[in-house]
């Protein structure tokens, strides 16, 4: 039996890696992947809690999160493709027409 703290620590580490990826990486696709990592870290946390509490709600929530993450990825990639249509770039530093 794996203690619950292990799930939580794994979730926290994954979430931290994801958040650092969003804040530090400059490639839009890597940022997108990092966001997915954050959402999956949350799923690990939900499922870990669900197992500890012997309560199904956490797993239901995780399923919903997976569904939403798929929708989000679809829209995000569509926006990236629209952005790439006339100039090839995925580097977010080059997305700089709007600046105050």
């Amino acid at each position: 039996m794996i203690p619950m703290t292990h799930f939580l620590i794994l979730g926290a580490i994954l979430f931290l890696i994801g958040a650092m990826g969003v804040l530090m990486r400059r490639n839009a696709i890597i940022i997108l992947l990092s966001i997915e990592l954050m959402l999956n870290a949350v799923n690990v946390t939900f499922v870990g809690f669900s197992r500890h509490l012997a309560d199904m709600t956490g797993q239901v929530f995780a399923i919903f999160v997976i569904t939403v993450a798929a929708c989000e990825a679809a829209v995000g990639l569509a926006i990236l493709i629209a952005l790439n249509r006339d100039r090839t770039m995925v580097n977010v530093d080059e997305v700089n027409l709007l600046k105050w």
């Binding site: 979430f15 994801g18 958040a19 969003v22 839009a28 940022i31 997108l32 966001i35 954050m38 959402l39 870290a41 949350v42 946390t45 999160v65 939403v68 989000e72 829209v75 995000g76 926006i79 990236l80 629209a82 952005l83 977010v92 997305v95 027409l97 709007l98």
Partner: peptide, 19 residues
């Protein structure tokens, strides 16, 4: 460009809220 920026920050925010 606005769409990309809003999307990246919005999805990040959802992750934070969800945690």
């Amino acid at each position: 460009e606005a769409g990309l920026k809003y999307f990246l920050m919005g999805a990040f925010a959802s992750g934070v809220l969800l945690y």
